[in-house]
Amino acid sequence: MNDVLVFGVDGNAVAFEQVKSWKNYNSIGQNVETIAMKSMEIANLFLAKDASAKFDNIVPFDLITKDTVGNFTPPEW
């Protein structure tokens, strides 16, 4: 079972270690800090009744693999 392909989601510090240490591990990373900030930005638009406020707000994810892990900084959590 040591070479089983594992996919996870979050891209937290544990994920970075698992990408490096497990033979086939990939993580779909979501940036919690960005999502928190975006939430407050959008909330302000709604409070101000700004016409540009949108219901659906998608933040891009990062695909963290052995090939890409060096491109990212592990998050604090």
């Binding site: 392909l5 996870g8 591990y25």
Partner: peptide, 24 residues
Amino acid sequence: GDEIQFVFCHWDNGATGVINASKP
């Protein structure tokens, strides 16, 4: 058993449990 070639676990901390279970 070895029929499992891939695991999609919805969160990385959960995948830690998967890896622990997969180790001999």
